[in-house]
Design a binder for these strands. Structure first.
Lengths: 193, 193, 193, 193
DNA sequence: AACTAATCGAGACGGTACGTCTCGTCTTTTT
DNA sequence: AAAAAGACGAGACGTACCGTCTCGATTAGTT
């Protein structure tokens, strides 16, 4: 249900320009600094924006960074549809891992870490990132199940955990790379399930 | 050890006592506060210890907390040996999950998060926690491989990722419980691998 | 110089209603808060008026407060005329002190303080308050001088300072009351001059 | 009464150096800026001192400024003793007025104004400045009364108000100078009282 | 009756300073 | 020599107002 024909809010509307300046500034900061060194104060200064404006739109650094990430590239990882579960999975997991090894990974680690400390952010982070990716994968699996490649009673949620779990585990611990053999191994492991 | 007949030291050799006071204080703080609210300042005050003393022994809060955790309970999770890989795995994974759902989980999440921000701590955390658990599991798998329950060329490192990955993934995201069905599902999937 | 026969300006005229709402709101705020806690923001909200409207009419809080005060009571202190300088003075100084001890004093102190920080306001404050009262007193003295109660070369400006000075001094410092003995003492002191 | 033989407080003592840096910085700021433009933030930066250090010693700008003023020159105005009340008064009032027209006046005005807004500061200001000056003058008057130059029942407190009142009144309003004729006039009036 | 123009309310804007917090270091006294 | 206590410089935090701006709506007088 939308606010069909809703009155525009009274008062000066929020400045799209300011918002974009902030997101751009954050992206630049992320390229030159570690996530932990990014502060509200620094963002405000870099974006030429007042601190209250920042706080009016976002509650903390993590939310801004997340916005900058999601608005930047929503289409990084497409949903493959080759007709075969195995190749679909292989492509999807491969894209996911490649994306995470190319710079986004470090930020995602920081956001995941931040989510452990702030319940409010955790909720948004999980809804925006984790769940949306999970649902994409689940849709892929469902399609495959409809083709009969999976047993009808397969627990798709669980399969998703088995897929993303090891990826995040390696990403967060850095004890082993997210490379092609790893992608193949996960794919094979899920195919056996 | 006594100061048997020793000259009174020129210094003030109270260090062991101070260290224990710190660890005890941290344990108490962890029971009543969120990890994020624990500060060096707070620990020093709670332990009746000077801040420089803290910094002389540990570089940051995370290290103290980790010390307090490891010194407290090293024997939480035993290594089962029933002769069957499946039941060994089931017991081990079950113990792991139960331990993580009983309070330690929240602290482990925080430490894992902290490790994303501080490379120095990350190294210690992985060596002390992650790797030691991985090695335990690998030993269990090796024993089983020697019994012929696993193919000789099985990638034990990878199997360990497939086991711990989903557990951490659920722990960090909280989207699903670490319950008995989950334990059984992971066990089953690894048995098939 | 008037806008004699000027065209009425085009556009919506300024709202008399808004102005009165502001002054009323300020009076209410003054009753419940210290002067220092009154802000443009607060006045706007209390009066249900936009901030630009406020700034269109007044440059700062002090000016609004002064307006509210002057519009409220212009006739607090009458000019006595008993035929005797001493009794005129006694009545006038007495009225002044009574008015200042009954609530107006605290606001006058704040306005006088504000005038120390803002030259623009200082000018208005002195013209509206200080000088108008001084002129009243000088008129009273002149009348008396015409009757021969004062030497012809008496410095009336100086006498006014000798009268108002101690009153303000006690008001601002609060080290002693503006009571009847004080009124009599000042009167006597001036009579001797 | 001092803390005879008191234990020195434990911990690092307060840095005399920091305190002096602050007072020096404030004096420099006062020369180049209006009082109202001086902020805690600015003082901290100018003195190369942390803000908490400032707040540890003083509650607000006014207190720092007052400290800087009192520590700078305690001997500006001596207490004359010529043997004659009239010449003593004339010298004392003259010194007071000269001191107030030479730069200190503007700061004193600001401090007096500040005292109207902050009760805590008001108390300190009155004790440090107002009362100490009043007592000096009262002592002078008492000495004279002992010589029989004043009636025995003269209200010295009141005479002090009659002396300082007009001075402050002219200082705060700026409608007339604190010049030599003014000094003579006040002296003459008090002599008649 | 439609147009024009200045006002209104609301509230977001870029700023600045606030007073607090924690950091990691430094200095002193005490043991 | 090492302990506690705690002050230190630094700087981010989130908040409060400032005075300006940008809206849509309202309200006159002018076409």
């Amino acid at each position: 249900m939308d606010r069909h024909q809703a009155k525009p809010a009274p008062g000066r509307p929020r400045s799209q320009q300011a918002m974009e300046a902030v997101l751009t500034a954050v992206r630049q900061l992320l390229e030159t600094s570690a996530y932990k060194q990014i502060t509200m104060e620094g963002i405000a200064k870099a974006a030429g924006v007042g601190k209250p404006t920042l706080y009016r739109w976002w509650p903390n650094v993590a939310s801004i960074v997340m916005d900058a990430m999601t608005k930047q590239a929503r289409q990084d990882i497409g949903v493959p549809d080759t007709g075969s579960l195995e190749s679909d999975l292989h492509l999807y997991i491969g894209d996911t891992c490649r994306s995470l090894t190319q710079g986004a990974g470090s930020i995602m680690r920081s956001l995941m870490a931040e989510a452990q400390f702030d319940d409010g952010f955790a909720q948004i982070f999980r809804e925006s990132f984790i769940c949306s990716r999970r649902e994409t994968l689940i849709a892929l699996l469902k399609r495959s199940a409809a083709r009969g490649e999976l047993p009808k009673d397969a627990d798709l949620e669980l399969l998703t955990d088995l897929c993303y779990g090891p990826i995040w585990y390696r990403l967060l611990n850095g004890h082993a790379p997210l490379d092609e053999p790893f992608v193949q191994a996960i794919t094979a492991h899920i195919m056996r399930g």
